[in-house]
Design a protein around this nucleic acid. Structure first.
Lengths: 207, 207
DNA sequence: CACAAACTAAACTAACCAGTTTAGTTTGTG
DNA sequence: CACAAACTAAACTGGTTAGTTTAGTTTGTG
């Protein structure tokens, strides 16, 4: 199923995808012109249309590449082997926050939200490869902590969802809509608050 | 400072804003043409440019009108006068979820996120008139509950932020990116989970 | 009814864009 | 060196767009 792409072609293809991603994240889907992508990629427009059927197809290829990257990054995610719930939750929260706030991830997120009404299949692909897999992975971690008596909750998926959601608070929101950071809602404070609340809400009953 | 707009003009203006909002929410900012707004508003293009300096200005007017509406809606928000923390939190959560998921609110939210990099002033205006005011209002509610011994927390703003964020979980997310609803994450389940966790995390110490 | 403000349709400018085509050049391979 | 695949610049098609202008019409008000 894989095409045996010549190294020259593969390099051009990567240059096109890089340029296109930068353009789309900067200007949005509709305002990005294929001519500009070609110029920024150092490639002729005809070459773009030799690799991609349409502007839409090029857009799709970017989302898919991002998904592949995400899937790889997730599987190589390691956590400290601690018996302290706080230690593990904090490590998880730090990794998630770093991921959420990475400019590239944030840019893709913004554009997926913006284009979801016009490109629902892409939104679905992105969601399943990214957020959904991340939550599944976190469910395993939470289940493991429950088994070890470190946490307690009724429904794993809802607990994980609540924990992740607390990380996407004011701090995240401000970055997302390009507002200056609020010193009361730093990354560190967000992590600490979320972990504190989770430890209380998921505290195993004594006995 | 207010213009004494003739009733005829005011009606036309409202029609233009309504049509523009529908267009922008449907197609996004860049893909909406002023000609189409004019047609949908039943107005000539020249009239649009007599009322608004540019397409950008028209866009700004929509966000501002939305902000005014939101500010009005917030001040008239009433809560049950209960002594049960669960009752009050559930009522708050229900009102917030209904607000978040309302198609118009969701549409504006999507477009503000999408256009934030290109229209940071508008994002700021929207944020301060909407989410920020809402959080301030909720801070008062939380402080009041703390005073009455119904809840306990160290930092009001962080507690409120965490509570609101839990409402913006998988259910909200799916609506935002046009994915079919997940029966495990209904609106009711989201509210119940958030309230349950908040009650545990903010439980006043016995004594 | 007269007058001015607000409106209308329609044409126009000057630019932009997705996608194709053409004719010629570079590049790896046998 | 010969050949085919991949590439290039540039022109071109058919269409769209923001914003302006023009000449004429509707509308409320004195």
């Amino acid at each position: 199923m894989e095409k045996p792409l010549s190294p020259r072609s593969a390099a051009k293809r990567a240059a096109m995808l890089d340029a296109a991603q930068r353009c789309f994240l900067e200007s949005g889907y509709a305002s990005t012109s294929v001519d500009e992508v070609a110029t920024r990629a150092g490639v002729s427009k005809a070459t773009i249309y030799a690799h991609f059927a349409s502007k839409d197809d090029l857009f799709g290829a970017i989302i898919c590449r991002r998904c592949d990257d995400q899937a790889e990054g997730l599987s190589s995610l390691t956590l400290p082997d601690s018996s302290e719930a706080r230690t593990i939750l904090t490590a998880v929260a730090q990794r998630l926050m770093a991921l959420f706030l990475a400019p590239e991830v944030m840019g893709i997120y913004r554009i997926v939200i913006a284009e979801a009404p016009r490109h629902p299949e892409l939104a679905k692909t992105w969601y399943e490869a990214g957020p959904l897999r991340g939550k599944q992975r976190l469910c395993e971690v939470f289940d493991d902590m429950k088994r070890r008596g470190m946490l307690d909750f009724v429904d794993t998926r809802r607990a994980v969802d609540a924990f992740i959601s607390m990380l996407r608070g004011e701090c995240f929101h401000r970055v997302m809509i390009d507002l200056p950071p609020n010193p009361h809602f730093t990354v560190e404070a967000t992590i600490e608050t979320a972990v504190d609340f989770a430890l209380k809400a998921f505290a195993p009953s004594q006995g």
